[in-house]
Amino acid sequence: MRQALPHAWLLAEAIEWLQGAGRLQRQFFQLGRSGDLPLWEPPVDMFGNEQAICLLIALPGVAAERMDVRLEQQAVVVRGERSLAGHFAAGTILQLEIPYGRFERRVPLPYDDYRVADMVLQDGCLRLTLERMS
């Protein structure tokens, strides 16, 4: 077991690459969709135990009134829109890495009876705390 420890960095790096690839796939392979369908998915961190789940959803530049949070069939769904800031619209885009437009993220939950106990939008992240009802 002690011999495997020097190679632990390799596993950690592989996991990081896989997570990055998943984020890129969710973000960019949906850009061609049109209409009312979402164009991108925000990244989510989720922590929990048997009583509650806490989600941290990255939503840089999204105003609270431009999003909707719902509990639906054993999932939490966050929808909304990130608009291109008005003061940038007049200039030429030189680089655009932060996604704009409609977004939706559906996060499956391990159980189906939750209630939203706390919801805070701060520093570009939405923190949701869901308490298990049963």
Rank of each mutant, 00 (worst) to 15 (best):
R23S: 06
G48A: 09
M46T: 06
V76D: 09
L96P: 04
R132E: 11
A8E: 09
R132F: 15
L10I: 14
L84T: 01
A75Y: 02
L121R: 12
W40K: 04
A21T: 12
A14V: 02
L121Y: 05
V77M: 11
D123K: 11
G101K: 03
A14K: 13
Y114C: 12
G22C: 05
R82K: 06
V78W: 03
L96F: 05
S34M: 10
G48W: 04
P110Q: 02
R105A: 06
L18E: 12
A12Q: 07
V120C: 05
A21W: 15
P108W: 01
L130F: 10
P6N: 06
F28C: 04
D45L: 12
P110G: 03
Q3N: 06
E65P: 00
G86S: 14
M119Q: 15
A90Q: 13
E41V: 15
S34L: 14
D45W: 01
V120E: 15
F29T: 03
P38M: 06
G48I: 07
L84N: 01
R66D: 08
A52T: 12
G35L: 08
L121Q: 06
R66G: 01
V62Y: 13
L128V: 14
V69L: 08
C125E: 14
Q3F: 13
V76G: 08
Q3A: 14
A89D: 12
R23A: 14
W17Y: 05
L37A: 15
Q27T: 13
R105C: 11
F103P: 13
E16M: 06
G101C: 01
S34Y: 04
F88N: 05
Y111C: 02
L56A: 13
A64W: 03
R102P: 07
M119N: 06
A14P: 00
P38C: 04
E65R: 13
H87R: 09
D113V: 05
D68T: 15
I15S: 09
H7R: 15
P43F: 01
G124F: 01
V120Q: 15
Q19P: 00
G91F: 07
V78A: 02
A12R: 09
P108M: 00
L39A: 02
L39D: 04
G48V: 03
F47E: 00
E16A: 15
I93D: 08
A63P: 04
M67L: 15
G80L: 00
R33H: 14
G61I: 00
L71Y: 02
A52W: 06
R115A: 11
A4D: 13
E131V: 07
T129S: 05
P38H: 06
V69W: 10
H87A: 08
I57S: 06
F47H: 01
F28S: 02
L126D: 08
L59V: 09
R105E: 03
V77P: 00
L126K: 11
S34K: 14
F103R: 04
